[in-house]
Design a protein around this nucleic acid. Structure first.
Length: 427
RNA sequence: GGAGAGAUGGCUGAGUGGUUGAAAGCGGUCGCCUCGAAAGCGAUUAGGCCCUUUGGGCCUCGGGGGUUCAAAUCCUCCUCUCUCCGCCA
């Protein structure tokens, strides 16, 4: 959410942001409502002031044993009027609030302007793309051959868009979890968290999934709870409605969680295999930082995510997202994409974003400035460090051998009982 | 799921209709004292919103609704915490 005063004072910047994001919202109408709200407030505040003063006088009269019935009946009318205006104020506040929650964040000046993903900029490429002398298989073929994943089985259990890992595939998931959490906690200074994966509406609103994207979420029927689409939601909400100490900043959290996405409306797109599934695993990093540090923190966050891929020796590229592709709540965002040689595609495995105070405002996350004693909103950031399903595609495809086996990346071997290669096993 | 108790400022905690936005204590900050520190003394110490301002006003005692001229205080619903019982991985 943006600051009301900011919108009032910089309507052109807000309009520009909306236009650059390819969205449509009527800001002038919104500001008219705000004006009306403030006029009503002035009116009702005056009446309340009268009531407060007169009420004191009624109390004084009663104390003295004098008759207060004239004032009493006057104030009855005033109170009635107050009630009327208050309900008007409430109605218009609700309207304003509903629209305010749909206004996206202002993109950072370094975010490329463009209407869609075509305007994203590749700003970095790392590692050599593998060039096999044989025809590489894709992960579905390899997974079946090696008996480490089964889509028929997951379809039987849950329907399309799920995956069942077995044997060394399952062990690799567990290895990745431990490797990434170890890296981020031991080398990058993050605190480990194991959060709930069901969260309430308020939490989903803080981080911006609600109210706009409710249809993308899995929701429980009997309780107002949602399955998280990313650990960003619980991690960021750890400090919702908190006042943090300045000396405690920055705060870094990391967590592994499964992530749940309905992916409504994306049927037909990447529906095969692991690249777009309803449930996947992910290690997430979240930061709470002082405003002046947030763009440096974004760079180190990106570096932390890249480190995972560097250690795994997987070729990747980093994209700076354009205004048309960046998420609703973010002001600047990098995507990391892995090359999967068997499928011959770039796969997004991480998004590292700075939300500035957009989420902090929604979740009321503040810190006390030590010098001024004033409260300010923190800046929040998050990044995947990284998402498993597509990472597993890349590992399996890039580490495949001519014989159709899969070598295990060196860093994962200790996490997999010293195993170096995945070969087919009988069921 | 059943029965009971509770939710007040950074913390502990008083407060059951009218100078209580809130006693007291702790903590924090500043000043005095001191070579310095401790102790002691003094002062100060919530947030949000609105108005054109030095300034003024409104709102907020878990959240919503209600009663009343007036609500931290009365009624009601909800959420959460604690205790006991039941159930359960």
């Amino acid at each position: 959410m943006l600051d009301m005063r900011f919108i009032r004072e910089n309507p052109d910047r807000v309009k520009e942001a909306i236009k650059n994001r390819n969205l449509k919202l009527n800001i002038d109408e919104f500001l008219d409502m705000d004006k009306e709200r403030r006029n009503l407030l002035v009116e009702v505040d005056k009446l309340k002031n009268t009531r407060n003063i007169e009420s004191d006088e009624i109390a004084a009269l009663k104390k003295q044993g004098k008759d207060a019935s004239v004032k009493l009946s006057q104030m009855k009318l005033v109170s009635q009027k107050i009630k009327e205006i208050d309900s008007k104020v409430e109605a218009i506040c609700n309207k304003i609030q509903n629209i305010a929650m749909l206004i996206p964040n202002i993109p950072h000046s370094s975010t490329p302007i463009g209407s869609d993903a075509k305007s994203n900029k590749v700003i970095k490429e790392w590692g050599k793309l593998p060039n096999f002398k044989f025809n590489p298989l894709n992960h579905i073929e390899l997974g079946e051959k090696l008996n480490i994943m089964s889509f028929p089985a997951s379809a039987k259990l849950s329907g399309s868009g799920f995956c069942l890992f077995t044997g060394d595939g399952a062990m690799m998931v567990r290895a990745l979890l431990n490797f990434m959490i170890d890296l981020h906690t031991k080398k990058h200074g993050y605190r480990e968290v194991w959060p709930p994966v069901l969260v309430n509406r308020r939490s989903m609103t803080t981080t911006g999934q609600l109210p706009k994207f409710e249809e993308d979420m899995y929701k429980l029927k009997d309780d107002d709870l949602f399955l998280i689409p990313t650990a960003e939601v619980p991690l960021t909400n750890i400090h919702s409605h908190d006042i943090l100490d300045e000396e405690d900043l920055p705060i870094y959290y990391t967590a592994y969680t499964p992530c749940f996405r309905r992916e409504a409306g994306s049927y037909g797109k990447d529906t095969k295999g692991l690249s777009r599934v309803h449930q996947f695993d992910k290690v997430e990093m979240v930061k709470f930082v002082k405003p002046e540090d947030s763009y440096d923190e974004l760079e180190s966050l990106l570096a932390n995510a890249e480190k995972v891929l560097q250690i795994l020796k997987l070729p990747y590229r980093v994209q700076l997202l354009s205004t048309g592709d960046i998420s609703f709540a973010a002001s600047k965002c990098y995507d990391i994409e892995l090359w999967a040689v068997g499928s011959a595609v770039w796969l997004e495995v991480s998004s590292c974003s700075n939300f500035e105070d957009f989420q902090a405002r929604r979740g009321n996350i503040k810190f006390k400035n030590k010098n001024t004693g004033k409260l300010s909103y923190v800046h929040t950031l998050n990044g995947s460090g990284v998402a498993f399903a597509r990472l597993i595609i890349a590992i399996i495809e890039n580490y495949q051998t001519k014989a159709g086996f899969v070598e295990i990346p060196r860093v994962l071997q200790p996490y997999m009982g010293g195993k170096k290669i995945i070969k087919p096993v009988s069921k």
